[in-house]
Design a protein around this nucleic acid. Structure first.
Lengths: 246, 246
DNA sequence: TGTACATCAGTGAACGCGCGTTCACTGATGTAC
DNA sequence: TGTACATCAGTGAACGCGCGTTCACTGATGTAC
């Protein structure tokens, strides 16, 4: 009996919740994951947090403010995950770059609620400075990685603008994520994993910029590859950029 | 006074509307464009069509069926526009291919309501066979174009799988469209036009596949270029893939 | 050409529901002295 | 250490609203004869 559990929790916590703001954010996350950013209501969040429908107004002006908070927190976690994936370019820049792309997809897949609040809730990004700043910090990770990669262009090839590279990588990742790596029912079927699709896409793109990516192993030469064994391992699927595709 | 106009229209049309199904679809499109796929209601659509709230039930089982109809019609129009842009590969394959990408962006920008119903309404695509088929026909245009392009790989370069190319192009276009070429308030700012961004992205990608795309003019050699002057014109911005980026 | 009748497409009133929001309130907590 | 008091965080009842949906109905249209 669900109400019994609610009663019990209520008895335990007493009159004050103690951490209602956080509880509301969590509740909203769950609801968004379940029914989409559209189908979540303020009242529902209160109910899930085991609190009267008037209580949320102590912490959020309205539904939109709660939604923005979630989007902002989403961008922060997104940034953290991209930063961790980038790992300052270790063990080598191309491998780390690939890992960032995969982290993008993983985030979309594992955090559909955040992803939906960040990119599909219809929130006017530029009307909310804090939100926009958080979004730009996340993009900054991709941008910094692109910067490092651009600096590696082989001698003789023109150096591509890092900003352009970053925007290209962002749009590739976002496209694959939105179409094929969603966490909800709108995900489209694919004859391979989204990770493989994106990896091949990025590698072909990098080769187009002049990076010496081998067509078979999909690895570029880069001094110094430290440690040597790490750069021939998990980042690439066997068969190179389209090994799995036939 | 709006009610006066309604009264008048009502008087004109008489008891029967005559084309209510169509009118409801149009009304819903307007509402979705205005408030997003989430914020459109069955009752509102009826009101906009100047009809009682019970009338729509003669034509649609429920709100979801109306939404699916819109998504399906959207895919059909999308397919038509992509087909027109492709123009069977005239005047040359690369130029026509670029045009398809631009048509993708233009559709997202000019038909935000369709775009949102098709890609962001949360409709479970694979639960609706007709809808899925319409979506696949649209993708088929990109796929056919990729097929033609793949057949053009220069001798000596391995031929890429057309399916993979098509999925890559789709995700690039979709990423740029969703982030930067939306028709609503969630559109992100960009230091160039979305068209330019996507064009550069696709050209670099094609070069990565071995197509002889010149870095400056961004044109590939292709026999036979008919008519010759058409292949050096509008498809490419001056300065090549990243001429505008510096 | 006219008439009877079936079918179709819309009406309008009603319903139950859940939402957002407000209000005066009250129990719990923190702090000044 | 105890007490008085201010502030804070949640209550619960109430409201108006618009939505989705149903129902018996009725005006318009099409068709058989």
């Amino acid at each position: 009996m669900s109400w019994r559990k609610d009663e019990q929790r209520r008895a335990e916590r007493g009159y004050h919740h103690g951490n209602l703001k956080e509880a509301l954010l969590q509740a909203a996350l769950g609801l968004i994951a379940e029914k989409g950013a559209a189908g979540f209501t303020f009242a529902d969040a209160a109910r899930m947090a085991g609190v009267s429908p008037a209580a949320p107004y102590r912490h959020f002006r309205d539904r939109d403010e709660l939604l923005s908070s979630i989007a902002q927190r989403g961008f922060e976690q997104f940034e953290a995950r991209l930063t961790a994936a980038w790992d300052d370019g270790r063990p080598d820049t191309v491998t780390a770059f690939e890992r960032v792309g995969k982290a993008y997809l993983a985030f979309a897949r594992e955090e559909p609620a955040f992803y939906s609040a960040m990119f599909e809730s219809g929130l006017p990004v530029d009307a909310n400075p804090a939100l926009m700043a958080a979004g730009e910090r996340a993009f900054g990770v991709i941008r910094a990685a692109a910067e490092r990669l651009a600096a590696l262009t082989p001698p003789g090839t023109p150096r591509p603008p890092a900003m352009m590279m970053a925007l290209h990588i962002w749009s590739m990742s976002h496209g694959v994520a939105s179409l094929f790596s969603r966490g909800d029912a709108a995900r489209r079927k694919l004859p391979m994993t989204p990770d493989e699709l994106l990896e091949a896409e990025v590698l072909i793109y990098l080769r187009g910029l002049g990076f010496p990516i081998d067509r078979r192993t999909a690895k570029g030469a880069e001094p110094p590859p430290v440690p040597p064994e790490a750069s021939s391992g998990s980042a690439t699927s066997p068969g190179g950029p389209w090994g799995k595709l036939k």
